[in-house]
């Protein structure tokens, strides 16, 4: 008789813990071919708000961690991700309807993407900052700092490579993140949460809410304690009005990373393309410090 396997309960990832949605709701996640995969928590407005509280609490420590330390932690994420390779291949293949071989390529690219950003942490200030030669006896230096708590609408289609491609640049510079996962393909996001939880990423630095994007995105965009929002995940999300989200974000002047638009419609970027610095640049603030020189 064959052994009955032990299935995983897919939950949220908030403040380093794995709670179910406070709403008690869940939804059935299906594979690309329509088979039942698992029940995922259906995150609510309250879950998003809890996640923001956790992200704010984690911000001071993560922003103050040395870039070298953040780089080591991110590299550790890549290590643990690689260690869970088989599980991610299964989830990506099922959710995105890929062959095992294609899914393996996606997972490898995701690991490499995290490694790429791990190497950036202690170079961001060197590349985006500089000394300013002011016309007077002053020391004057400009350097980037993290913006704060960043809301991230993760891509709907690319459930792992797209996900790490939007999360890694946010936390590399010292921000903390509240991530709303792909609505239809949330399982790799939950498993990524398990990777983060075992990679020395402090609790609260990344919070992942599996939810219907249209339901919770408004609350994230309007939240007064969120400093920035990445709207990438509006592409292909059902019932989401991204102009409305950007308008909500203006309430406290959030920095907004708009979706890529083609033909007037948001489209998901090509995640296999080289990322560039845009996603890091979108969520840093330049601070300039002056001090007189003299005897």
């Amino acid at each position: 008789m064959s052994r009955l396997d032990v299935r995983k309960t897919y939950k949220l990832y908030i403040g380093g813990k794995f709670p179910r949605s406070e709403s008690g709701r869940s939804y059935a996640v299906q594979s690309a071919s329509g088979e039942f995969l698992a029940n995922a928590s259906m995150g609510s407005r309250k879950d998003v708000r809890d996640a923001v509280v956790a992200a704010r609490a984690a911000f001071g420590g993560w922003a103050a961690a040395t870039p070298y330390n953040r780089g080591q932690v991110l590299y550790r994420v890549a290590e643990v991700l690689e260690g869970r390779r088989a599980q991610f291949i299964d989830e990506v293949a099922a959710g995105e309807g890929l062959t095992a071989r294609a899914a393996a390529g996606v997972v490898d690219a995701a690991v490499d993407r995290v490694v790429w950003y791990a190497g950036w942490t202690d170079k961001i200030a060197q590349v985006l900052g500089n000394l300013n030669p002011v016309a007077g006896p002053y020391f004057n230096v400009s350097a980037p700092e993290p913006t704060g708590v960043v809301g991230v609408l993760a891509p709907q289609a690319s459930s792992l490579l797209g996900l790490v491609s939007v999360v890694a640049p946010v936390i590399a510079s010292g921000n903390t993140a509240v991530v709303v996962s792909s609505a239809a393909r949330p399982l790799p996001a939950v498993t990524l949460g398990e990777v983060l939880a075992t990679s020395d990423v402090p609790g609260g630095v990344v919070n992942i809410v599996t939810a219907q994007t249209a339901e919770v995105a408004t609350w994230l965009a309007a939240h007064r304690d969120v400093n920035a929002i990445d709207l990438t995940g509006v592409a292909g999300a059902e019932g989401v009005d991204w102009a409305g989200l950007e308008a909500e974000a203006a309430g406290n002047l959030k920095r907004v990373l708009r979706p890529q638009v083609a033909g007037g419609v948001p489209v998901e970027p090509d995640w296999t393309a080289a990322p560039g610095l845009e996603r890091i640049r979108a969520f840093v603030e330049t601070k300039t410090v002056w001090h007189p020189k003299g005897l």
């Binding site: 300013n132 002053y138 400009s142 601070k287 410090v289 002056w290 007189p292």
Partner: peptide, 29 residues
């Protein structure tokens, strides 16, 4: 949490020195 910090001086400006805010003081330099 401010875009410009003046230490032992204040209200200095220079074309080479980026100016602009955090939070609700706006965005861009």
């Amino acid at each position: 949490r401010a875009g410009v910090v003046w230490a032992n001086t204040f209200n200095r400006f220079d074309p080479t020195s980026p100016f602009g805010g955090y939070k609700e003081s706006g965005y861009g330099r």
